[in-house]
Design a binder for these strands. Structure first.
Length: 431
RNA sequence: GCUGAGGUAGCCUAGUCCGGUAAGGCGCCAGCCUUGAGAGCUGGUGGCGUUCUCGCCUCGGGAGUUCGAAUCUCCCCCUCAGCGCCA
């Protein structure tokens, strides 16, 4: 949620910023929010004046009673106040709700460095690492390669859970765990605290962290309970301090979340995305940071550097893009995607999303920073970034490290986590 | 799931039966004192609106009764404890 103060003090800046998103609806919402805010403030003043009058009158009645004087006349005067107050209060509440509803639907303000564009084809490459591996006849798509090794089951999973689910079997499970542990160890080296969050969240905290449309398109709801399966550890980690005041001295708070992630993600199942690239359930190690507003740009680069380091250690070529205005989404002020090279597809594909959400999530969640019981509190910034989503990382590894005989070499950095195992082979039982 | 007890400011607690406009402690901030620290003493402490230093709000949330609600009535939410079930 955007700070209403900015709307009041610099509406032209907000308008300019929103205009970059090329969605006239946002400009309309901005007008609605501003108009309702102005009207609300007038209504509030009116209601305050009435309450003042009511308080004064009842005070006088109380005093008269104590003094033993008659109060009938005073009471008659006082009786008129609550009726009018009720009317004004109703209007005040309506205006405030209208303002907040508009405000909640407005996206975050974009950072100046976000490139202008209509969709992901306009994202700007800001870094590349490694040489894209050349195409080879024998290279199979990762899903097929894993099936041939007997390490993934799609058909049986479809039968019991539906399309988009899978069983991992055999050594690839250990590879998956190795990726989690490797990413976690990297983050521990860099001062993160590991965290396993709840995998289900109530609606109220959830509304603080995602775009409202996500409830329809992305999240699974538990029937009969006010609970949603988390789409990423980012969500419970952001909600962790809901309604709290963070001690400034303790910032930044760096968390390394480990969780299963569940996504409905209606549509978008192209040929390239067969296998385990786009699925309803996967495991992810997530970086999450709470920091002071002035530190968030620097933290954003730090998170990006950590994510890059994961793929450097895996020796998988990648590039980083600065996600453009049309693709950045409503929550982030700025977003980098890290796209790994998929050797069979001969294409860079998204494996990491690294966002600076500034104060947008924290304000919605009622998180502030400063001294408890002291004035002058401000809203901290939150950031999140994938460290590794194992499904996509496994997919990238299988495409990159595949050999002509169908076996898959284990990246050197992961071997210590696999008892020294150097390749995935058909029929090879786990060590 | 059943039964019971609770939800008061950053935290802890009083007030609730019997309606009169949130008391106290801790913490924190400032000042005094001190070589310094601590202790002690004094004052302060949240949010919104105003910029007229004044008003309003804040007792889990909402509705109602009333001139007036933390307090009475109704609805809802959440937490804890015991029991039950359980990896």
């Amino acid at each position: 949620m955007i700070d209403v103060e900015i709307l009041r003090n610099a509406p032209e800046k907000v308008e300019e910023n929103l205009a970059r998103r090329r969605n006239p609806e946002y400009l309309r919402l901005l007008v609605v929010a501003r108009e309702n805010d102005t009207a609300w403030r007038a209504a509030l003043r009116e209601a305050d004046a009435l309450r003042r009058r009511r308080n004064e009158l009842s005070q006088r009645i109380a005093e008269a009673r104590t003094a033993g004087r008659a109060t009938t006349e005073l009471e008659a005067t006082a009786k008129a106040v609550p009726e009018e107050l009720k009317r004004v209060e109703r209007r005040e509440a309506e205006l405030r709700e209208a303002r907040d509803a508009a405000l909640r639907r407005l996206p975050n303000l974009l950072d100046d460095s976000v490139p202008y564009g209509k969709d992901d084809s306009d994202n700007v490459v800001v870094a590349t690492w490694g040489e894209p591996t050349p195409a080879e006849e024998w290279r199979k798509p990762h899903g097929e390669a894993l099936e041939a090794l007997g390490m993934v089951e799609f058909e049986r999973a479809r039968r019991v859970s539906g399309a988009g689910f899978y069983y991992l079997r055999g050594t690839v499970v250990l590879l998956d765990l190795a990726l989690q542990r490797m990413a976690l160890d990297l983050l521990l080296e860099r001062g993160f605290e590991p965290a396993i969050p709840p995998f289900l969240l109530r609606r109220t905290p959830y509304e603080g962290v995602v775009d409202l449309a996500d409830f329809e398109n992305v999240m699974y709801k538990i029937d009969g309970d006010d609970l949603y399966l988390i789409a990423t550890a980012e969500h419970p980690l952001a909600a962790l301090y809901q309604g709290e005041i963070l001690d400034e001295q303790r910032l930044p708070i760096r968390l390394a979340g480990l969780s299963a992630c569940f996504r409905q993600e209606i549509g978008g199942h192209g040929v390239d995305q067969k296998g385990i690239f786009r699925v309803h359930q996967f495991t992810k190690v997530e970086q999450f940071v709470y920091c002071r507003p002035e530190d968030s740009s620097r933290m954003h680069e730090e998170l990006r550097a950590n994510a890059e380091e994961v793929f450097r250690r895996l020796q998988i070529p990648y590039r980083v893009v600065n996600v453009c205005t049309g693709d950045v989404g409503t929550i982030a002020a700025k977003k980098y995607d890290l796209e790994a090279w998929f050797a069979r597809q001969q294409a860079y594909r998204e494996v990491v999303s690294c966002s600076n959400c500034t104060d947008y999530q924290a304000r919605r969640l009622g998180i502030r920073m400063g001294k408890a019981g002291r004035p002058g509190k401000v809203v901290p910034h939150t950031l999140n970034s994938t460290a590794v989503a194992t499904s996509r990382a496994v997919a990238a590894i299988v495409e990159q490290y595949q050999r002509p005989d169908g076996s898959v070499e284990v990246p050197k950095v992961l071997r210590p986590y696999l008892g020294g195992l150097d390749s995935l082979r058909a029929g090879a039982s786990p060590p």
